[in-house]
Simulated scan of single mutants.
Amino acid sequence: MEALLIALAALYGAVAGALLPRARYRLGVGPEEPWRRLGPCGHPVAGWLGPARCGRCGGVYGPGARGPAAVTALVCAALAGAAGARPELAVWLLAAPVAVLLAAVDRSVRRLPDVLTLPLAAGLAALLGAAALIPGAAGSWAGALWGALALGGGYFALVVVHPAGMGPGDAKLALGLGCALGWYGWDVLLLGAFAGLLLGSGCALGLLAARRVRRGTALAFGPFMLAGAWLGVLAGASHA
């Protein structure tokens, strides 16, 4: 039964990930720039979901052509293996494609769009509230809400203290990640938060040592926050 659940979650992740490249292309623009409406070929981009390829001429929309299907499949399979057939698994699976898309966009253009971060936070809060009412849930909705306030508030404070190193998008993302981590308790919240910081710091030091970046170079921190939160949720789900 567990193997079947993991396989189904991986299949779902692969299908969901295959629908992300077009959204990645449209959202992959700099701050204050409008979302892309035209492909490089000049034809309008139809919708938000699907491959990053023009339906008229077959032209590829740049770096978003290779979709993150494999990454989303891996993320969903791991979540299914850790959480099992508990109500909150449905919430994690719904949030996973959004998280992968956010990581891809931030890595490309160092931007975490409000159209993704804010609905992610609100959706997690609402869906975890519903999951808490179903027998078999292993977390706490109150803990999720407190986690969102704690991690979101912490990152907003970092934005105020050090705006050059942390952006408002990171703080808005932290609201949703804090909600997910807080579901399993304060220890998981701290684990996920510090895992993101350690991953980001380790990558920055590695790039500095390899002379790929210079001291003071700004890096996209969203992917590390998301990876740390994913590891925290895996740990919390496994021990719930």
Rank of each mutant, 00 (worst) to 15 (best):
E2H: 14
E2S: 14
E2F: 13
A3K: 14
A3D: 14
A3Q: 15
L4Q: 14
L5S: 10
A9V: 08
G13K: 08
A14V: 02
A14Y: 15
A14Q: 15
A16W: 06
G17V: 02
L19D: 10
L20D: 02
P21M: 03
A23G: 06
Y25V: 09
G30N: 03
P31S: 05
P31K: 01
E32N: 12
E32S: 13
E33Q: 15
E33P: 09
L38D: 07
C41Y: 07
C41M: 02
G42T: 07
H43E: 05
A46T: 07
A46D: 09
G47F: 13
W48P: 04
L49C: 05
L49P: 05
R53K: 08
R53S: 08
C57T: 06
C57G: 05
G58F: 02
V60I: 04
R66K: 12
G67S: 07
P68F: 07
A69Y: 14
V71E: 15
A73Y: 13
A80R: 03
A80N: 09
G81Q: 06
G81L: 05
G81C: 08
A85M: 10
P87D: 11
W92I: 09
A95Q: 13
A95K: 13
A95Y: 15
A96T: 06
A96N: 06
P97G: 09
P97D: 04
P97S: 11
P97Q: 07
V98P: 07
A99H: 15
A99W: 15
L102I: 10
A103Y: 14
A104Q: 03
A104H: 04
V105C: 03
S108M: 11
V109R: 01
R110N: 05
L116A: 08
P119W: 11
L120A: 13
G123A: 09
L124H: 13
L128P: 11
G129S: 01
G129L: 03
A132L: 09
L133D: 11
I134D: 05
G136Q: 09
G136R: 06
G136K: 09
A138P: 10
G139Y: 11
G139E: 11
A142Y: 08
A142F: 11
A144Y: 13
W146R: 12
A148I: 05
L151S: 04
G152L: 11
G153M: 07
G154P: 01
G154C: 07
F156C: 09
F156W: 12
F156Y: 10
V159P: 02
V160L: 05
V161Y: 03
G165V: 01
P168L: 07
A171L: 00
K172S: 00
L173E: 12
A174Q: 05
G176T: 09
C179Y: 12
A180L: 12
L181Q: 11
Y184I: 00
G185Q: 10
V188T: 15
L190V: 15
A193W: 07
A195H: 06
L205H: 08
G206A: 06
L207F: 02
L207P: 00
A209E: 00
A210Y: 03
R211E: 07
R212H: 04
R212C: 12
V213G: 00
R214G: 01
T217D: 01
A218T: 00
A220P: 03
F221Q: 00
P223W: 15
G228V: 00
W230R: 07
W230I: 11
W230Q: 08
L231R: 14
L231H: 09
V233L: 10
L234I: 08
A237S: 13
S238Q: 13
H239T: 15
